[in-house]
């Protein structure tokens, strides 16, 4: 049984344009499942709803957001009450922004409050050592940390929490390559110990190194969920035309772009969200948004994919 299931999730935001209040659907009919012992990498353009998914799972969306669909944790629906209970204990977030640290608390104590098993102080020192944070760092306040140090502190907090699900929202930008490697290897390690990791990133290359599955987001929905092995060569084994284009645009591959850009939530096309940019698109694609379907051991949201 998957530990985390997201079924048909939609997130809408109320926004003003002048005096009129409009509702933008930023995430629409999104499906993702996360198994214990597995790393799922979520990739996609900025604004495709990656971070919002994380915030929806943890129940920390802003006030003007409304949500529908079902999120299940360990088979049971994740209600706002349960989210509050589980947050930071069984489901931990490695946030994108370093503003998530408490500015008035020494970082050492912040990490210690998250320790669940064993002696808090020694666990914290151990994890700091692993991320190359010197001993004196534990006595510092967040404003004294550099960006990279703050990020490593955030990583430590999630690592010591003993959570069963770790959601890492862009944990690596601004870190040196060795630390990135170290952090990613740690994710692999906790996953091998039975933890489930959702790694939100736009660094496809490092995601491929450690993840088991990749979910590709486009304009607020999943277009494909595929095992990492499919991402190789010229992308022949990739199912969805968008994921293919994404793969081929990477500088280490063909470095060839497709025209157009991801639509803004206020002007989503009817039918398949990718149809306006897709070479395979037929009139049928512009009618209704295709459902997710199983294909070659993965999932794809495209009627033409083979």
């Amino acid at each position: 049984m998957p530990i985390l299931e997201v079924e048909n999730l939609s997130v809408s935001f109320k926004q003003y344009t002048g005096l009129k209040q409009k509702t933008h659907k930023v995430i629409s009919s999104l499906n993702v499942t996360l198994e214990a012992g597995e790393i799922l990498a979520v990739v996609g353009a900025s604004g495709s709803g990656k971070s919002l998914l994380a915030h929806a799972i943890l129940g920390i969306l802003p006030r003007n957001a409304s949500i529908c669909g079902v999120i299940k944790y360990a088979g049971e629906e994740l209600t706002p009450d349960r989210q509050t209970v589980l947050r930071g204990k069984e489901i931990a977030l490695v946030p994108q922004s370093v503003n998530f640290l408490d500015p008035l608390m020494r970082v050492g104590s912040q990490v210690r409050t998250s320790v669940k098993n064993g002696d808090a102080v020694s666990v914290q020192r151990e994890v700091f050592e692993r991320y190359h944070l010197r001993q004196e760092v534990e006595k510092m306040y967040p404003f004294q940390l550099s960006g990279g140090m703050a990020r490593r502190t955030l990583l430590s907090t999630a690592m010591v929490s003993g959570a069963k699900v770790i959601i890492a929202d862009e944990p690596t930008p601004g870190l040196d390559p060795d630390v990135i490697k170290e952090a990613l290897n740690n994710f692999r390690e906790v996953a091998d110990n039975g933890c489930a990791v959702m790694l939100i990133t736009h660094d496809i290359e490092s995601a491929l190194n450690i993840a088991d599955k990749i979910a590709v987001f486009y304009a607020g929905t999943t277009v494909e969920v595929a095992p990492v092995e499919n991402f190789k060569g010229h992308g022949e084994e990739i199912r969805h035309p968008y994921s293919k284009a994404l793969w081929r645009a990477l500088p280490q591959n063909d470095f060839i772009p497709i025209p157009g850009s991801q639509p803004h939530p206020s002007s989503l096309p009817a039918g398949c969200l990718f149809a306006p940019r897709c070479v395979m698109a037929t009139p049928e694609c512009r009618q209704v948004q295709p459902e997710m379907r199983k294909l070659r051991g993965g999932m794809v949201r495209c009627i033409h994919a083979t």
Partner: peptide
């Protein structure tokens, strides 16, 4: 192009 996806990055650089 650090904050952008691979396709947009490639488009802009080209």
């Amino acid at each position: 192009t650090t904050m952008l996806d691979a396709i947009t990055q490639t488009q802009i650089w080209h």
